[in-house]
Design a protein around this nucleic acid. Structure first.
Lengths: 224, 224
DNA sequence: ACTCATTATGGACTGAGTACCGAAACTCGT
DNA sequence: ACGAGTTTCGGTACTCAGTCCATAATGAGT
């Protein structure tokens, strides 16, 4: 890998983290400037042919300042998604406690989808031909959702009275997230006339939830 | 990402590719030497702290020769798995034609598992503390299995009379592969007393297959 | 004024991956 | 035996992401 910067720390790593600290030099509002500069350059010359130096330069900022805001170049490809993904813990807490594990799984994904802004489609996807970062986009994306899968494992383990390392739990969490990603990317790739993200996600995730229901909702093995 | 080198081209990219070419300088049997040197160094100093130069040097070979055999440093983490993954197309062809799509999905995964050598556990997993390449290991692994998911989408589309881009198809393929990975890594992480890989994979994949059965095995939408 | 915390920035460094080029080593046709 | 074509080997040089470190700028609190 190299970096990754899980969504939790992604933006958090930047100056935005120390939100309400006392003193300190004020941020030159560079973050948004950097995003914009990067967006322009990606459209102009493509992702691969854009260097971090160029981004920083266009933003009128030092190269190191870039790394103050983003841990990785590829973080720029996931701006909106990271916003949503950072809300995962919160979303998981909001899932009603009474639900069967398999239902809780589905509802968690729907809750996440409901949070995502309607226009929050990664540049890399909506302008894929122009930006041309297929490979790096997928790689950096997979790591993000792997993080989600891990959180989901813990959540599911709790709800199902099993351990997070239970193979069944991990498989269910992984498959669910995979379905989520498929649904979401299908939605994102649909034209302007795409429906609601929640619907796309439901269609994709439902079967997984249903499939794991018999094994997941049954009483966990006696051995704890 | 950066490189990736899909399993199909992974080894193929190296000299081993031009198997039965006519003339040319003979390979100094370096491939295996490089693998061994890398393995030693990874155990000695860990993955991250091992440079390609060091590997090449210990193997008594030029740095460039390394890249003749491996496209990426992380390829070294997946030697055996790549062998198995390269057989995916073949495995898919061997899945009986009469099966329902959801069953075909499961059988494909089992067929793949059956091919994998019993001792084929990535160094990075069996020696994870020593090697310490968690992040890069996962990242490079995810890409590989994403490749599998894509092949599986095409396969499934064919078997289900749908298109490979059908959201349902992609979701099913993705979820299935996710389950496969969960099962396989659970198996790999189990101690010496692990059972058969096929069994672990079956347990993980079964529910997904079963879950998608109703939607997948039904007649595809009239519109094409 | 002084201290502390935070951000900005510049310089230097590591290491992966790429490009290019010429030399070695082998096959084959003549 | 010789030359042509082909493949591997290996060196030099380069690009660029990401890290480290030291220093200056800017503000809040006392």
């Amino acid at each position: 890998m190299t970096k990754s910067s899980a969504p939790g720390t992604a933006r958090g790593s930047g100056p935005a983290a120390a939100a309400s600290a006392r003193g300190g030099r004020p941020r030159a509002s560079s973050r948004r400037t950097l995003e914009d500069a990067a967006g322009e350059l990606f459209l102009e010359r493509g992702y691969a042919r854009t260097t971090i130096d160029q981004i920083a330069q266009r933003a009128g900022v030092g190269r190191n300042t870039f790394f103050n805001y983003f841990a990785t170049k590829s973080d720029l490809l996931w701006l909106d998604v990271d916003d949503t993904l950072r809300a995962v813990p919160e979303v998981l807490e909001e899932v009603p406690a009474g639900l069967a594990p398999s239902d809780a799984l589905r509802e968690a994904m729907l809750g996440l989808a409901a949070r995502h802004p309607h226009r929050g489609i990664p540049l890399a996807l909506s302008q894929r031909e122009t930006i041309g970062a297929e490979a790096e986009f997928r790689a950096s994306g997979l790591e993000r959702f792997l993080g989600v899968a891990e959180q989901l494992s813990v959540f599911l383990a709790d709800r199902a009275g099993r351990t997070p390392n239970d193979p069944l739990v991990r498989a269910a969490a992984g498959a669910t997230v995979a379905a989520l990603v498929s649904g979401a990317s299908g939605w994102a790739l649909a034209g302007v006339e795409r429906g609601a993200l929640v619907d796309a996600v439901r269609t994709a995730v439902e079967p997984v939830s249903r499939g794991y229901a018999p094994v997941l909702d049954a009483a966990p093995p006696a051995t704890r």
